[in-house]
Amino acid sequence: MNKGNLMETNLIVEGFKFMGLGMGTVFIFLIIMIASMNIMSIFIHKFFPESKLEINPAPKQDNKKVIAAITAAISHHRQG
């Protein structure tokens, strides 16, 4: 009986140890992740702002329009 009781406390304590270690790791991991996410976004916004990336597609569309207009003009000219 005594031995059984001893085993009981041991296993449940074991479960709580798992909980402590597990939740600790999960939270530490997520806190580090949150911190690095914040650092990353500050870094990216400072050195690689989005607007620069988006400048490129815009002229491409203009180019297409210009090309389309020129082709239309040329074909019109040839027909005429």
Binding site: G15, F18, G22, V26
Partner: peptide, 18 residues
């Protein structure tokens, strides 16, 4: 910071383990 909520929910795992 909402990632912490995803961490807290893991209590479901370890609570059930106990």
């Amino acid at each position: 910071k909402t990632a912490l909520l995803g961490g807290a929910a893991q209590f479901g795992i370890f609570g059930t383990l106990v």
